[in-house]
Simulated assay, not measured.
Amino acid sequence: MTADRRRVLLFTSHPIDARDGADKELSVAIASGLPEFRFTWFGRVGGRGREPLSGGRRIPLLSPSGMPGRAERAQAAAWALALEPRSDLLHAVMTIGPAFGAFTRIRERVLGGRRRPALHTVPAVEDPARLAGVTPLGTTVALSRSTEQMLCDAGFPDVRLIPPGIDLDRWSARPRPAGRLPVVAFAGHYDPGGGVDESVAALGSVASSGRPLSALFLMRPRPGQDEDREAERLRERARAAGITDVVVQGRTPDMPAAVAGVDVLLLPARHLHGKADVPLTVLEAMATGRPVVVSDLPQMAALGSAATRVPAGDVAALAGAVLDLLDGPGRWDAMAQAGLDLVRREFSADGMTARYAALYEELLAPRAASGATEAR
């Protein structure tokens, strides 16, 4: 094994050139920031020309939707088992869901001694109850202290904390728009409990109080959801709640511009259900200089006082937090600056990739030493 361009199999549950999401964004940021390694990654059949990574080896997956469905997961798992023995390091970036435990058992039986050092970045855990009895892939990386503790409590032996990072060149601070209605945005999924229902109710309450605003919903469907139908239902619910100026937007080609056009971003989730522990959209809004209002889930503690946190499910508190920001220029300025400072200090892509580079070297060191001994 040579010291340069060591081979890393980037194991994701779907093609990373086909959809947005925390696992894709983290995968691309890590691989882009570590040019000294040669990555093998999963792309979509017919997706040439949209490569998120400029180098490495692209493995095509059949994926009509580009989302992590059962077929995509099965293909990715099969390719991972075939390619891992030809790699120097396996780096999985995927949420721990129902099928994860089965894959780790199959990997152990199929590969045995041909397994390579493995690293698993866990954007989120869908159901903590499923952690019981799960065999880790290897060293596990959590994005937040709450998930780090959860994994340790479940018996994962080697858990590290590396917060997510975002590209601060792409997500740079922009001035607050002026001369129009304030725009309050929610970004997320249509799932109950994800915060969209609370956002509709709270913004309806704000609008009904006589405070004019525009509501923007930046939505991503789950596999199997009819995006057009879900969007129309959301518009109807927003209007019924008293929001007269409402926009529901799906996949957005220029998210930095979309986020720069809002005044406040909301993510009042009652549970994250597979979203990143520290949602990247929240960090991106903070990097743009936009105050955020989130629920007080344990994972959100990583944001400290740089975000306004309200009790999960408390619509009145959410509406009050929005009004405080819209009607208090000093409050808006202070929270915008606090978020900007936090992201620059703790959530940069450069800082994240430096920590992964050190971890890669740590995991590869025993294999390098073994190779040197054999060469002698």
Rank of each mutant, 00 (worst) to 15 (best):
W332S: 01
T288N: 13
D296S: 11
L280N: 12
G320N: 05
L340I: 00
L318C: 00
L297K: 06
D333E: 14
A301D: 15
V282M: 12
P279C: 06
Y356S: 14
V264Y: 09
M352W: 00
T308K: 14
A257C: 07
P268G: 05
P256E: 14
D296Q: 09
Q337V: 13
L266N: 04
L280H: 09
G261Y: 13
M335N: 04
R270L: 11
E284Y: 10
D296L: 07
T308C: 15
L303D: 09
R309S: 15
R345I: 02
L297H: 08
V278W: 05
V294S: 02
V343R: 01
L272M: 08
V343E: 06
L266P: 05
E284T: 12
D327K: 00
L265F: 12
D277E: 15
L342K: 03
L326N: 10
D277S: 14
G304N: 11
L265C: 14
V322C: 08
D341F: 01
H273P: 02
V262M: 15
A338E: 11
Q299K: 03
R331N: 00
L323Q: 01
A257I: 09
V259H: 11
L267Y: 08
A316W: 04
L323A: 12
A269Q: 10
L303T: 09
R355M: 06
A307E: 08
P256D: 13
Q299E: 15
A285Y: 05
W332K: 01
L280P: 09
T281W: 07
R309L: 09
K275L: 06
D350E: 15
L265I: 14
